[in-house]
Simulated scan of single mutants.
Amino acid sequence: MSLTILIVDDHPMTVDSYVNLLSDDSFDTTEPTFLKKYNCETAYKTMLLMEKQNSKIDFAIFDVNLPSYEEANITDGIDLALTIRKTHPLCKVLLLTMHTEAFIVNRIIKSINPDGFISKSEVNFESFPDICKKILKGEVIYSDEIIKSQKKLTHRNLNWDEYDSQILILLSQGVKTVNIPNHIPLSMSSVEKRKANIKSNLLLEKGGDTELINKARQLGLI
Score class of each variant (00 low, 15 high):
S2E: 09
T4R: 13
I5L: 07
L6W: 04
L6I: 11
L6Q: 08
I7N: 10
D9E: 07
D9Y: 07
D9N: 15
D10H: 12
T14Q: 07
V15F: 04
D16G: 02
Y18G: 04
Y18H: 14
L21Y: 05
L22M: 13
S23N: 05
D24K: 14
D25T: 12
S26W: 01
D28K: 13
D28S: 13
T29P: 01
T30L: 13
T30I: 13
T30A: 15
T33G: 02
K36H: 02
K36R: 12
Y38M: 10
N39S: 12
C40M: 04
E41C: 13
T42S: 15
Y44W: 09
K45R: 14
L49A: 15
Q53A: 13
S55H: 04
S55G: 01
K56A: 15
K56S: 14
K56E: 13
K56D: 10
F59A: 09
A60T: 05
D63E: 08
V64Y: 11
N65V: 12
L66A: 10
S68N: 13
Y69C: 12
E70T: 09
A72P: 00
N73W: 03
I74W: 02
T75E: 11
G77A: 10
I78V: 14
D79V: 08
L80P: 06
L82C: 10
K86Y: 02
T87K: 09
P89H: 08
L90I: 06
L90H: 09
L90A: 14
L90F: 03
L90C: 04
C91R: 01
L96A: 03
L96V: 03
M98P: 00
E101K: 11
A102W: 00
V105K: 03
R107H: 09
K110A: 14
I112L: 00
N113F: 12
N113H: 11
P114M: 12
P114A: 14
F117V: 08
I118W: 02
E122H: 11
V123L: 09
E126N: 15
E126D: 15
S127V: 07
F128E: 05
F128L: 14
F128V: 08
D130W: 05
I131E: 02
C132E: 03
K133F: 00
K134Q: 12
E139Y: 04
Y142D: 02
Y142G: 03
Y142P: 00
S143I: 02
E145I: 03
I147Q: 02
K148G: 01
K148N: 05
S149K: 07
S149T: 12
S149N: 06
Q150C: 05
E162V: 15
Y163T: 08
Y163L: 06
Y163A: 04
Y163K: 08
D164K: 11
D164G: 13
I167C: 09
L170P: 01
L170I: 08
L171G: 06
K176W: 00
N179E: 08
I180L: 04
P181M: 08
H183S: 08
P185V: 03
S187V: 01
M188I: 10
M188P: 00
S189K: 13
S190D: 05
V191R: 07
R194S: 11
R194W: 06
K195V: 05
A196T: 10
N197F: 05
K199D: 12
S200R: 15
S200F: 03
L203F: 07
L204K: 12
K206M: 06
E211Y: 01
L212W: 03
A216I: 01
A216H: 00
R217W: 02
Q218G: 07
L219A: 09
G220T: 04
L221P: 01
L221V: 08
